[in-house]
Design a protein around this nucleic acid. Structure first.
Lengths: 127, 127
DNA sequence: ACTTCAATTAGACTAAGTCTACTAGTCATT
DNA sequence: AATGACTAGTAGACTTAGTCTAATTGAAGT
């Protein structure tokens, strides 16, 4: 009867916010991939705390292809070279679109959450 | 500069709520696949309005395999046979877990939405 | 020499959903 | 009798997003 760890109801498949999170971080300052990774892991936004490096770097490259980001390779005095990313104008427009999308999405999920909560109260209250 | 139709910021990839929606519907009454399809299309919850039949039926079978649903084949006096689905006890437990998950998720998205909105106001207000 | 950290990449995989197309029965028209 | 519309469900290839394991390179610390 117990619900498994990987059942979708645990919410493990509900994270689709890597892109807006990246755009948000880069709207404040330019950052390279690894810095974005660390920022996301410390973020108060839980959705990206367990971000996977492979996924992040792949997403950055994809966003650059989509012209949301531009990068420049930066060779440091010490340590390996790294790609510093910044927002393009299109990236900024994308972030503004996200603002509305997230607002609408949030309201929508809110309605579903309330309906589910109501259904649960009606039936079996959790003791 | 314009954002494409299929850019993630439009929100087209933000629908991960087919399973809780199905559980919610079935917590009220038993239904067969096609009825679930129609209910979802009329639902006030936007996330599932454009649900695809293939995806729905596949999800139903998967949920049955995961023992969240049970089905019985029902031959009607008129029309093709159909599979009527109902919640199992595990399905009920899953729905209760969803209640908490959706609540937490909603709060999380809310925070991100506000941060993005704030970032957009700081930079370029949309004219 | 050994380890640790910084920075990034490769490749195979999984979850969810989309798109096009198809089958098969029933019903009302034409 | 044939057509089209509706009900009910299925097949298969594809896309998006993200995970997991593993590897590489270089510099710094012990």
């Amino acid at each position: 009867m117990a619900i498994e760890e990987k059942c979708p109801c645990r919410g493990s498949f509900l994270d689709r916010f890597l892109q807006p999170s990246i755009l948000l971080l880069l709207s404040r300052e330019e950052l390279h991939g690894f810095a974005i990774l660390k920022r996301l892991r410390e973020a108060d936004f839980e959705g990206c705390q367990r971000v996977d490096p492979t996924g992040l770097y792949r997403t950055l490259r994809k966003m650059e292809q989509a012209e949301l980001l531009r990068s420049k390779r930066e060779t440091q005095r010490s340590g390996p070279a790294r790609d510093v990313y910044g927002l393009t104008e299109k990236g900024n427009a994308c972030l503004r679109t996200w603002a509305g999308t997230l607002r609408a999405y949030c309201d929508d999920v809110e309605r579903l959450a309330e309906a589910v909560a109501a259904a649960c109260q009606d039936s079996e209250p959790p003791v």
